[in-house]
Simulated scan of single mutants.
Amino acid sequence: MGKNSHFQFKQFTIQQDQCAMKVCTDACVLGAWTDVDNADRILDIGTGTGLLSLMIAQRNTYAAIDAVEIEAEAFFQAGENVHESPFKGRIQLYHEAIQDFESEHQYDLIVTNPPFFQSDLRSPAEKINRAHHSETLDFAGLLNAVKTLLKAEGRFSILLPVEEGIQFRTMANEQGWQLRREMTLLHKPDKKPFRTLMEFQNQPSPVLQVLTETLNIYETNGVTYDPKFRMLLKDFYLKF
C-alpha cells in the first residue's frame, strides 16, 4: 500500500507525494485500533501526512487534536490534507520537534508512529533517514515528552516493529508505565509478526488485566482479507 501520490479513504484523502513516509497498512491499523473514547484533547507525535490525526478525528467527533511534525515537507503536506478534510476545524499542526513542543494543555491521549529503525541500513535520502531512524527522537526522548504532555490519568498508543517493541516495553516498564492493551500484527497466520501496537497508562493498577490480541491482515491464502481486519478498517477503506 501507499506507493501512489495519494490515498483515498471514505471521508478524506491523503496526498503523500512530498512525504518520505507513505500511507501504510500498519499505521492505518493504529489509527483504527487506538482507544479514542473520553479524550477531549489528543496529541499526534510525528504526524507525517496527518493520517493518524484524520483517522482519529473521524472516530472521535469532538476532540481537539494537536499534531507535531519536524520534517518540513511532511508538515506542509499534512496541512494540505487537513485543510481539505471535513475535520480541519479540530486539528492544529505544529512544525517542530516534540522535544521543543510546549502546550498550555495536557492531553487525554497521545498517539505516535515514531521513527524506529534504530539499527537498519541508512537510506541515502536524508528525509527518509529522519522518518525511519531514531536519530531525531529516541525512545528516552519520546517517553520524556509523553510524560510531560500526558495527563496523569491519560494513555498513549504506539506502533513499533516487534523487536523494537520489546525494547520500548522494557524501557517504559522501568519508568513506571503500565501496559493496558497490546496487539500483534501479522501479514497472515503462517508468517512471523511484524508490528506491535501498545497502549500504556501512567497510573499503576494492581488489578489491571492487560488485553492482548492478534490481528492478521490476510487469511492463509494471502489474498482474502481477514474478517477481523475488514471489520477494523471498514469505516476507512473504500474496498470494504
Score class of each variant (00 low, 15 high):
Ala64Val: 04
Ala64Pro: 00
Ala64Trp: 02
Ala64His: 06
Ile65Gly: 02
Ile65Glu: 01
Ile65Leu: 07
Asp66Phe: 08
Asp66Tyr: 04
Asp66Leu: 03
Ala67Thr: 05
Ala67Trp: 01
Val68Ile: 09
Val68Pro: 01
Glu69Ile: 14
Ile70Met: 04
Glu71Trp: 01
Glu71Asn: 13
Glu71Met: 05
Glu71His: 12
Glu71Pro: 00
Ala72Phe: 06
Glu73Asp: 15
Glu73Pro: 00
Glu73Ala: 15
Ala74Thr: 14
Ala74Cys: 11
Ala74Lys: 04
Ala74Asn: 09
Phe75Gln: 07
Phe75Tyr: 15
Phe75Leu: 13
Phe76Lys: 10
Phe76Tyr: 11
Phe76Leu: 13
Gln77Val: 14
Gln77Trp: 05
Ala78Asp: 03
Ala78Pro: 02
Ala78Gly: 08
Ala78Val: 12
Glu80Met: 12
Glu80Trp: 07
Glu80Cys: 12
Glu80Tyr: 04
Glu80Val: 14
Asn81Met: 13
Asn81Val: 14
Asn81Phe: 09
Val82Met: 09
His83Cys: 01
His83Leu: 14
His83Trp: 04
Glu84Ser: 15
Glu84Gln: 15
Ser85Phe: 08
Ser85Tyr: 05
Ser85Glu: 08
Pro86Val: 12
Pro86Gln: 06
Pro86Tyr: 08
Phe87Pro: 02
Phe87Glu: 04
Lys88Ala: 12
Lys88Thr: 13
Gly89Val: 13
Gly89Asp: 12
Gly89Arg: 06
Arg90Leu: 09
Arg90Lys: 14
Arg90Gln: 06
Arg90Asp: 04
Ile91Pro: 01
Ile91Phe: 02
Ile91Asp: 02
Ile91Asn: 02
Gln92Leu: 03
Gln92Met: 09
Gln92Trp: 00
Leu93Cys: 11
Leu93Asn: 06
